Amino acid sequence: MESILNIATELLLLLFLIITFVQSAMDKMLDWKGNVSWLEGHFKETPFRNRVPLLLATVLITEIVAGILCLVGFYMLCTGGENTLALAGAVVACLALLMLLLGQRIAKDYDGARTIAIYFIPTVFLVFLLQ
């Protein structure tokens, strides 16, 4: 139990990312049409306007990969102290957040971009802790 307490911060941050990305991916899959419709309006005045389904699919795949890597990494960190997959998950999560940030900035949704930045801070911190 002592070893798990030594990595409590890493485990809590991984749980944060698992919840964030698994829920986000599930939302996209369960309401694909609603998400595409909303995003088409969000990006109607941007260069992304004709690529919304492709871009949404790219983000969805990245979120699924991040969530799975974080989940498996959480398990591996708990059971054997191995952090390679947890680190990979955190890095992929950073990439997903950077994609989302780019979209918000292109759409000139600065409040949305600020929200993404709030998620990015603990994610980068996790990358730092796992290196």
Score class of each variant (00 low, 15 high):
Met1Asp: 08
Met1Phe: 11
Glu2Met: 11
Ser3Gly: 04
Ile4Val: 14
Asn6Trp: 01
Asn6Tyr: 06
Ile7Glu: 08
Glu10Pro: 05
Glu10Phe: 04
Leu13Gln: 05
Leu17Gly: 10
Leu17Gln: 12
Ile19Cys: 08
Phe21Gln: 02
Phe21Tyr: 14
Ser24Ile: 00
Ala25Asp: 03
Asp27Phe: 07
Met29Trp: 06
Asp31Glu: 14
Trp32His: 05
Lys33Glu: 15
Gly34Ile: 12
Asn35Ser: 14
Ser37Ile: 03
Leu39Tyr: 05
Glu40Pro: 01
Glu40Val: 08
Glu40Ala: 05
Gly41His: 12
Phe43Gly: 07
Thr46His: 01
Pro47Ser: 13
Pro47Thr: 07
Phe48Arg: 06
Arg49Trp: 02
Arg49Gly: 01
Asn50Met: 06
Arg51His: 13
Leu54Ser: 08
Leu54Gly: 04
Leu56Ala: 10
Leu56Asn: 05
Leu56Val: 05
Thr58Val: 06
Val59Thr: 06
Val59Leu: 15
Ile61Thr: 11
Thr62Leu: 10
Glu63Ser: 02
Glu63Lys: 01
Val65Met: 04
Val65Phe: 03
Ala66Tyr: 00
Gly67Leu: 04
Leu71Pro: 00
Gly73Lys: 03
Tyr75Thr: 14
Met76Arg: 12
Met76Ala: 08
Cys78Val: 14
Glu82His: 10
Asn83Phe: 08
Leu85Phe: 14
Leu85Thr: 09
Leu85Gly: 05
Ala86His: 00
Leu87Ala: 08
Ala88Met: 09
Val92Arg: 02
Ala93Arg: 01
Cys94Ile: 10
Leu95Ser: 12
Leu95Asp: 02
Leu95Phe: 13
Leu97Val: 03
Leu97Lys: 00
Leu100Val: 11
Leu101Tyr: 02
Leu102Ile: 12
Leu102Lys: 09
Gly103Glu: 06
Gln104Ala: 14
Ile106Leu: 08
Ala107Gln: 01
Tyr110His: 09
Asp111Gln: 11
Ile116Trp: 02
Ala117Ile: 15
Ile118Phe: 13
Ile118Arg: 11
Phe120Met: 15
Thr123Cys: 02
Val124Leu: 15
Phe125Cys: 10
Phe125Ala: 15
Phe125Thr: 10
Phe125Tyr: 09
Phe128Thr: 10
Phe128Ile: 13
Phe128His: 05
Leu130Gly: 01
Gln131His: 09
Gln131Lys: 09
